[in-house]
Amino acid sequence: MEYLAKKPGLVIFFLMLIFITILDLVFKIDNSIIRVVIAAPLAAFLSPRKKKIKTQAGDKTQITWFFLKEPIFVD
């Protein structure tokens, strides 16, 4: 989970593929532009977020994700 949280571009790509496939096969949306317009915000909402936090030990990067309860800290 930490590897995926550190690679938000990879997560967004796979979520986009999953949502486009679901919209195509389950909901039968044939227009590709509409599928991308619906899938892109969903993937962006569910992707990991990076935030810089100043601590006494120095700056750290905090990664929060919709699926994780506790944030991941990266030096």
Rank of each mutant, 00 (worst) to 15 (best):
F45H: 10
V74Y: 02
N31S: 10
P8A: 02
M16N: 02
E2V: 00
I38F: 10
A5M: 07
A43S: 12
F73P: 03
I12H: 00
I33G: 13
T61H: 03
I72N: 00
P41I: 05
R35N: 12
A57M: 15
T61W: 07
S32A: 13
K7D: 13
K69R: 15
F19H: 13
D75V: 11
L10K: 07
I63T: 03
P41E: 02
Q56H: 13
I63C: 03
F66A: 02
E70M: 08
D30S: 11
Q62R: 03
G58L: 03
V36A: 13
L4E: 05
A40Y: 10
F27C: 07
T21G: 15
I22K: 14
V74C: 05
F73H: 03
K52Q: 12
I29V: 04
I63R: 00
L42P: 01
D75F: 09
P48G: 06
K54I: 09
L42G: 04
L68E: 12
E70V: 06
L15G: 02
F67G: 07
I22C: 12
V26A: 09
L15F: 05
K54H: 13
L23I: 01
F45I: 14
L17Y: 08
V11G: 01
T21P: 09
D75L: 09
L17E: 12
D59V: 14
K54T: 13
F14C: 08
G9Y: 08
G58F: 01
K52S: 11
K60N: 03
F45Y: 12
K6R: 08
M16A: 01
N31D: 14
I33A: 14
I72C: 00
K50I: 02
V37C: 14
E70F: 06
F66N: 03
P48Q: 02
D75K: 14
I34C: 11
E2W: 00
L17M: 06
L4K: 02
E2N: 04
T64W: 01
P48Y: 01
F66L: 13
L42Y: 05
K50N: 05
I29M: 08
L42N: 03
I53F: 09
P8W: 00
K52D: 12
F67D: 06
K6C: 06
I34G: 09
K6H: 05
P71S: 07
F67R: 10
D24W: 14
I53H: 11
I29L: 01
A5I: 00
A44C: 12
F73S: 02
Q62I: 01
N31R: 13
A57K: 15
F73E: 01
M1S: 06
K60D: 05
L15E: 08
D59N: 15
N31A: 11
L4T: 00
L42V: 01
L17W: 05
P8H: 06
T21A: 14
K7N: 14
I22Y: 15
K52I: 07
F13T: 08
K7R: 09
K7L: 07
Q62V: 01
L4D: 00
A57V: 15
I38R: 07
I33C: 06
T61V: 06
T61D: 08
D24F: 10
F73T: 05
I18L: 10
A44Q: 11
K28F: 10
L4Y: 02
P41F: 04
W65G: 00
D30Y: 11
A57I: 15
L15K: 13
L15N: 07
F14T: 15
K54N: 11
L46I: 08
I18S: 10
M1P: 07
I34D: 13
N31W: 11
